[in-house]
Design a protein around this nucleic acid. Structure first.
Ligand SMILES: [Zn+2]
Ligand SMILES: [Zn+2]
Ligand SMILES: [Zn+2]
Ligand SMILES: [Zn+2]
Lengths: 151, 151
DNA sequence: TATAAGCTTAGAGTTAACTCTAAGGTCAAC
DNA sequence: GTTGACCTTAGAGTTAACTCTAAGCTTATA
């Protein structure tokens, strides 16, 4: 039987977060002391670790709530339900990934185009690209910046 | 001179968002009608488009505030200031990307390991992997699932 | 027994970027 | 001259997942 601070140490989640998860129905302390202190069983600990693992995998607390419902009554739930949740999350992650990759590429091109030096920004190709709606390709940006540098 | 709804159409930002940006010091309407209606000049429009482009590139509104300060007085700012902002954002994006890629891989492995079928989830390898803290590799997960399938 | 550390609760605050509402003034058209 | 579309403001609500605070018990240690 662990007290909340002990569970906190064991899981790396703060006591605040554990109480937050409890308030939101994800976890529970099986027992309480007479004074009301939470006491966690091994089973409670495993549930918390499940939540933490799912969290690290990217699932939202709402997703995790569903996964936990399945976990406690696997006979009443199918693999398909589990994959539905997983695939939905994968799709979200993939979409976000695509968006971020596009941003990364744009930012890299911007950085490559700019001299990054201490002179004033009147010739800055990053500013120009943002002004132009990022229509410049790498070469055009580079050309523009060089004009500034060499003038 | 455009009214706010016209600027909205032109930029794809809602009138609400445009007022929000104004409240936060990013943009402004150069003129107002006697009744207080906002009127935007071409210069205002270009500034809004700059904001939108920077936003699409991933910059926060705070970043954009700094970029705008540079934009209106390029002589007092250096390319280095611009690249500092850009590199910081690139680093953030790259970090997030790494995190999401790890999630994506985990989710893909989970999906590959699970049959996704209509039978009950007592044998589900996704649930097992989450229970085990995702220590299972692809083969182990697959083996586990197959045991369930073939019994 | 007194001090400190740890526990309890309800509830407020944080973050970013919107998003929306209410209450009312303005303007063009019919 | 009255709809109806559009504009104004201040300010509240949204989202997710915490994060923290206050006020007050409890427990362990010296
Ligand atoms: Zn330069
Ligand atoms: Zn530059
Ligand atoms: Zn299965
Ligand atoms: Zn399965």
């Amino acid at each position: 039987m662990l007290k909340i601070s002990e569970l906190s140490k064991k899981t790396g989640l703060t006591a605040h977060t554990l109480r937050y998860y409890e308030k939101h129905g994800l976890i529970n302390a099986s027992n309480r002391s007479e004074a009301g202190y939470r006491f966690y069983t091994d089973s409670d600990v495993r549930r918390v670790q499940f939540v933490k693992t799912a969290r690290n995998t990217g699932f939202s607390l709402e997703d995790i709530g569903q996964l936990l419902s399945i976990r406690v009554d696997k006979l009443s739930h199918s693999c398909q339900e589990v994959t539905d949740i997983t695939r939905k999350k994968l799709d979200e992650v993939s979409a976000k990934l695509t968006e971020l990759q596009s941003m990364q590429q744009t930012l890299q091109l911007l950085l490559e185009s700019c001299c990054g030096g201490p002179e004033n920004a009147t010739h800055c190709s990053i500013m120009e690209a943002l002004d132009a709606g990022l229509l410049l390709d790498r070469e055009a940006a580079s050309r523009t910046e060089q004009q500034g540098e060499t003038k």
